[in-house]
Amino acid sequence: MPHATQRFAPYPVGRVYQLIEPGPVVLLATSRAGTPNVMTMSWHMMVEFTPPLIACIVSPGDHSFAALKATRDCVIAIPPVELAETVVGIGNCSGAHVDKFARFGLTALPAEKVAAPLIGECFANLECRVVDTRLVNRYSLFVLEVVAAWIDPKREAPRTIHHAGYGRFRVDGEEILIDSRMP
């Protein structure tokens, strides 16, 4: 039997994340002392259905880290592909120096259960509260509970972008249906 290294080529372990990115690039909105901020985030994953829990990485180097740690709430907004350049622009600057809502023409809308704003240009907004910080100091990993969710019913089948590393993105596309017993 041939050895695996005869069939496969080595791949840099530092780029593995490009193969396994779990979901769409999202915007994480926070608000601290009445000042909203937004960051681009692609390192997140669902960890539970009921209640809906999302784990996400927010680095201490991100301006949003201090706000999320202090306020313990945020909004995860899911942008459509039409906002791809805006999403990258948001990720390429810091809220410590720039009012990103103003710079990128985003509409901050009041949320129902958290202080962070919804983002009007996104097709879905998830109001979240931090429910677990045990892995923040070690891995910058926050566990969030979705406490309210909103979707724009006028947007049919919005397409999302997925980070593939180094300025490359994939756009979701064809939907297939396969019988499943999952809810």
Rank of each mutant, 00 (worst) to 15 (best):
V47P: 00
R134E: 06
D62W: 04
Q18I: 05
R181H: 14
A149V: 03
T50Y: 08
F8N: 13
V146W: 01
A4H: 13
V81P: 07
L28R: 00
L109W: 11
P52V: 07
D179T: 13
A111W: 07
H3N: 13
P183T: 07
T86F: 01
G91F: 02
A157T: 13
V171E: 12
F123I: 10
V13D: 12
D62M: 07
D132Y: 00
R7G: 12
R134F: 01
P79F: 06
L135M: 09
Q18D: 12
V38P: 01
R32I: 10
P117S: 10
T50V: 11
G89K: 07
D62C: 04
R159A: 14
A157Y: 10
M45V: 08
L126G: 05
P183M: 10
M41I: 12
L109E: 15
M39F: 02
F49N: 12
P79A: 11
V146F: 02
L177K: 14
V16T: 15
N37A: 06
C128N: 00
I178N: 13
E175F: 13
I161E: 01
D152P: 14
L126W: 06
E145D: 02
G165H: 05
Q6P: 04
V114Q: 02
A9P: 07
P2N: 10
A33S: 15
Y166I: 07
F65H: 15
L141E: 01
L141W: 00
T71R: 13
D99S: 06
F65G: 04
L19S: 08
A29S: 10
E82T: 15
A4V: 13
T107N: 11
T5N: 14
R15P: 05
A115F: 06
V130T: 07
E174N: 11
T71W: 03
A70W: 01
L28S: 01
A29P: 03
A4L: 12
Q18T: 15
P22D: 04
V87T: 12
P36W: 02
T160E: 11
V143L: 00
C128G: 00
H163A: 13
E85P: 05
A96P: 08
R168V: 14
W150A: 13
G91Q: 01
F169S: 04
A70P: 03
P51K: 02
L144F: 02
R7P: 07
M39S: 05
H3F: 10
D172Y: 05
P183C: 09
L19Q: 11
G167V: 08
P110W: 10
P60R: 12
A33K: 09
S140K: 00
I176Y: 14
G167P: 05
S94F: 01
P36H: 06
A164R: 13
E82I: 09
M182Y: 11
I119A: 08
H63G: 06
D152C: 10
C122K: 07
L118W: 06
V147N: 02
I161H: 03
G61A: 10
E121F: 05
G105L: 07
L53I: 06
H97W: 12
S64I: 04
R138M: 04
D152H: 10
L126R: 00
